[in-house]
Amino acid sequence: MSAPSFAVPHALLPSVRLRRRLVILAGSIAALAGLLVYLRVDPIAAVRDFHYVTDLIREMLPPNFRLLAVKPSIWNSLVQTVSMAFLGTLVGAGIALVLSVLAASNTSPNRWTRLAVRTLLATERCTPNIVVLLVLLIAVGIGPFAATLSLSIGSVGMFGKLFADAIEHVDPGPSEAIAAAGGGRLHAIRYAVLPQVLPSVVANCFYAFDVNLRAAVALGIFGGGGIGFELNVARSVLRYKDMFACLILIMVLINLMERVADFIRKRLFSMEGELR
């Protein structure tokens, strides 16, 4: 006698489902263990040596805010980090705008320019900031200038594709009207394309500033100057109380700048019509 046809399908039987889940669970654990062995990481050691973590926390507390009085250059380094992000975003956006006009199918002079610029942008997007920075540190020397340049170059990659896509999606009507009235390609770009993409360009600038501020902190650690540099100095001389103070300053700075950017963005977009 075979099983009656109204039975629950075999694959949905609770015992079968349970077994399948157990197999998946066991498989994941085995895979995780295998990967950890490959990395030569011993997670049990982390638990066994947990006192290092508590030691560190004890070392870090309380944060040494006297640092701000003793070392006034900390204030400067905060401003420097913001400046790096600001300038990097702005220069990146400017270069990206020019390149994206060349990369967009409706404004590019010809296919080969378009292909070349697109390829350049794609390569750039895939190059991590750190690679660019390491090269620039050698070329222009250690300091905030190298980090600013590296952020600009990174922003070009980030912006270029976004802008080019925005330009390709503009309404062709105004450009055609300008062409019909005898305007050249540059006129069309200035008076038809640019006004249409400007809001998205500005919005992307704010987003990129947010990303770049974090990146500016990170690049500082590698010798790019700013508060990241101070943090790393405090860490490498084992002054953990100073490091914790820098840490809190970074958090405050990033949250504060987020608020400021939000405020400016709201004001800017409330008068969006005038912006053009």
Binding site: L39, R40, V41, D42, P43, A46, D49, Y52, V53, L56, R214, A215, V217, A218, I221, G228, L231, N232, R235, Y240, M243, L247, I250, M251, I254, N255
Partner: peptide, 24 residues
């Protein structure tokens, strides 16, 4: 929110101080 305000690399610097260098 606090965590979002910290770049990964800063978290790493703290963790390296606690757990030492390495993939962990």
């Amino acid at each position: 929110a606090i965590e979002r305000g910290l770049p990964e690399i800063v978290i790493l610097l703290i963790l390296v101080a606690a757990f030492g260098l390495g993939p962990f």
